[in-house]
Amino acid sequence: MNHMRQMIILKDISLITCIVQKGVADDIVKAAMEVGAQGATIYYARGMGVRERLGIVGVAVDVEKEVLNIVVANEQVDLVFEKMFLAGKLDTPGMGFMYVTPLLKAATYIPQEILEKISENCGE
């Protein structure tokens, strides 16, 4: 029936970026997904700054980092942000850093049945 290709543009979304030591990202993604995040992109990077100020304990901080990108709905952002903070133990020096960026728009595949549900709600 529907031969026209369509793009659904998502509004009201934010990007959470979280920089942690190599190997920690998977736990944080798991925590974020438990409270509603849909997925995550992880890439590798190198960082510096706090490690040098930790003295000898700094050896425990890996120079290689993982950077997580998680896109969430604006309603979820505070909850996911908090859970990620706790899962990553970011209240410990040297463990990492995270921030939220507002996004203008996003687009991806949206399942048909979800679109139908949305339009039903709007119809009411």
């Binding site: 190997g23 920690v24 930790l54 003295g55 425990a60 133990k89 410990t92 040297g94 463990m95």
Partner: peptide, 23 residues
């Protein structure tokens, strides 16, 4: 001040060292 050392509490040291050693 970037030259100043960060003061670590014992819980911080534990949290930093535990994953390092156990991995």
């Amino acid at each position: 001040d970037r030259r100043e050392k960060i003061k670590l509490e014992s819980i911080d040291i534990y949290r930093l060292l535990y994953p390092y050693i156990s991995n």
